[in-house]
């Protein structure tokens, strides 16, 4: 086991624990905290994959903005921490479906000959300058469209959340 693998297992373990915590925690606020753990761990995975830019974005947007937003929403909707009410009646089916999905995907991952598809042995380092170059050269139009989507979402969210006049 190389030290890289060691780091991977540590970060992967944190991610799985965080995710598990999100879906099984008996307290919604705990869930949110677990989510932060999972998101930051995923940022670590990104670093491991040599995607430093994405790791930074991940921490900024997810670890910061999104979790804060979710906590706000919890506060506003006053989701009471009544343990027995957190899970719906179809939980067993949910577990079965998740397990089925997991087995199918793992089967697919194991059953695929990645070498034949051109997978390399090691992680290839991607320079951040090259990424920026491509993003603003070849993907400029989708990038601008993404900004547009954000603007629309922003306006939409305000319109929806503000409510009607006199409410």
């Amino acid at each position: 086991m190389t030290y890289e693998e060691g780091i991977f297992y540590v970060v992967a373990g944190m991610t799985v624990i965080g995710a598990l915590g999100v879906v099984v925690a008996r307290n919604v606020v705990h869930s949110a905290l677990f989510l932060i753990l999972a998101l930051v761990a995923v940022a670590g995975l990104f670093l491991l994959l040599s995607a430093e830019f994405l790791a930074i974005v991940q921490v900024l947007i997810y670890g910061g903005a999104v979790t804060i937003l979710i906590l706000f929403a919890m506060m506003l909707t006053r989701v009471r921490d009544v343990p027995q009410a957190l899970d719906g009646p179809q939980r067993p089916f949910a577990a079965m479906a998740a397990a089925a999905f997991l087995s199918v995907t793992i089967l697919a991952v194991v059953g695929t000959d990645w070498e034949a598809l051109g997978a390399t042995e090691k992680i290839n380092v991607i320079p951040i300058e090259a990424l920026g170059d491509v993003l603003f050269r070849n993907w400029a139009v989708p990038f601008e469209l993404a900004s547009l989507v954000l603007i629309v979402a922003l306006i939409g969210a305000i319109v929806l959340a503000r409510g009607e006049e006199g409410e």
Partner: peptide, 11 residues
Amino acid sequence: LAIVMGVIILA
């Protein structure tokens, strides 16, 4: 749940 089932069956 139905959607997930469908996806699994398709997969």
